[in-house]
Write a protein that binds this DNA or RNA. Sequence first.
DNA 1: GGTCTGACCGGCG
DNA 2: ACGCCGGCCAGAC
Length: 116
Amino acid sequence: MRLTKKNPEEPNFFQDVWEVVKLIPRGRVTNYGAIARYLGTAMSARMVGWAMNAAHAHKHIPAHRVVNRQGLLTGKHHFETPKAMQQRLEKDGVKVKKDQVQDFARVFWDPAKELG
DNA sequence: GGTCTGACCGGCG
DNA sequence: ACGCCGGCCAGAC
C-alpha cells in the first residue's frame, strides 16, 4: 500500500513521520530507514528525509534526532546554522564528534521495536 | 510530460 | 573498506 495522496484513505505521510519523530525520547536518535519501516514504506527512506525538510518549515519537531543509518548528521545543512543540529543533540546528552553520533548503536531508537 | 534531484538504504562486486 | 547501482516518490524545471 502506498502512503501518498493517491490514497486519501491513508493518513498524511508527513504527519505520520512527524508524529514518530516527536516520540523520539530525549537522548536517543533514530534514522530515516527505521521511520520508513515503521510506517510501512521500507524502501522510501528518501521520502522521510524529504518530509523532514517540510517539517522544518511547519512546526517544532526534533529533526536533529534523525540521522542517517551510519549515525551521521547528514541533514545539518538544513538547520538555521550547520552547528545547530549537533548542539541540540549534545544538549540532549548525545555525544557528537565530526558529525558522527558517538555510541550510535546504544542511543539508537527503533520505532518499530519500541512502539511495536 | 520527460528528466533530474534528494536530510536514504541495501545489495553486490 | 570502497564504489556503483537500483529502488522509492514528490517537486522543480
